[in-house]
């Protein structure tokens, strides 16, 4: 209970900084981090996600405890640092969110549309169940090392496609991920850009998502981050849950291999 009260205090305080300029927000975040080293609003997402994982839901009135995230039925510990991976039961590589789509359809009996139509919380509307679940499962790998061995040929193939995508320069502005994320100490306006060709930066960056975004007042997933980078790079809209994003995530996860996973983090 005490923790919860503290949490509410932090959240309302963050809500205030939100109206300040970028710089102040950044130093504000650092201040809260130092002040409350052990607390992050994302804790709320973890708790709700855990709840969702264990609750019966959908036409089948089933919980997700039957869902195999790659480490056996119902195992959430350490699942995230080994994803994306090849799943023999479906014969393809899936990232966490695709696997959750699969489990919620097959085990709980939801339709595809029901589990894909609202992936990212809109301002002022209810939080997406996907973001709750992802934050919970990701948090179950906190402190573990990223482990993406690419043993299966389908995994290697997914990685190759992700790499091609990372280097693809297209659209009205000729942008690719490479345009903004291949040099050290670069910025767009004031926003710092991680260099994914640098293993240390790739590990630190990949290992920090999902993250509580102070600017949004929400936890955002890697899927959302990439969705928004597609927008910035003048690419068409990425369809939620499709292999395209899984390929990119495979490339980024492999680039972060060996790094200590440390999410959910707190960001601007």
């Amino acid at each position: 209970m005490f923790n919860f009260v503290r949490l509410v205090l932090v959240i309302s305080a963050l809500g205030l900084t939100h109206t300040y300029a970028d710089d102040e927000t950044t130093s504000g975040i650092q201040e809260y981090r130092d002040l409350l080293a052990d607390i992050n609003p994302a804790e709320l997402w973890i708790l709700s996600g855990e709840d969702l994982w264990f609750s019966a839901a959908g036409p089948n009135e089933a919980s997700l405890e039957e869902c195999d995230l790659g480490k056996g039925r119902g195992v959430t510990k350490g699942a995230y640092v080994e994803l994306p991976r090849y799943f023999p039961d479906v014969g393809k590589v899936m990232d966490l969110e695709q696997r959750l789509i699969h489990c919620r359809m097959v085990i709980q009996g939801f339709s595809r549309d029901e589990v894909t139509s609202y992936p990212f919380t809109k301002r002022g509307e209810e939080t997406s169940a996907i973001e709750f679940l992802v934050t919970f499962i990701a948090s179950e790998s906190k402190g573990m090392r990223m482990n993406i061995p690419l043993e299966h040929v389908a995994e290697q193939n997914m990685f190759d496609l992700g790499k091609q995508l990372f280097y693809l320069r297209a659209g009205s502005h000729d942008f690719g991920c490479i345009t903004c994320h291949s040099g050290d100490n670069k910025r767009i306006r004031l926003q710092e850009l991680p260099n994914f060709r640098n293993a240390e930066q790739a590990r630190k960056t990949y290992g920090s998502w999902p993250a509580y975004r102070v600017s949004a007042g929400e936890v955002r997933t890697m899927q959302h981050r990439l969705y928004d980078c597609f927008r910035q790079q003048r690419f068409p809209e990425a369809i939620y849950g499709d292999d395209l994003i899984t390929a990119l995530i495979m490339f980024l996860a492999k680039s972060a291999d060996g790094g200590v996973y440390d999410a959910p983090a707190m960001k601007r």
């Binding site: 995508l165 990425a238 369809i239 395209l244 994003i245």
Partner: peptide, 11 residues
């Protein structure tokens, strides 16, 4: 392969 991935994954 990349063409198919983009074609299917973009809107």
């Amino acid at each position: 392969e990349l063409g198919v991935l983009l074609e299917e994954g973009l809107r």
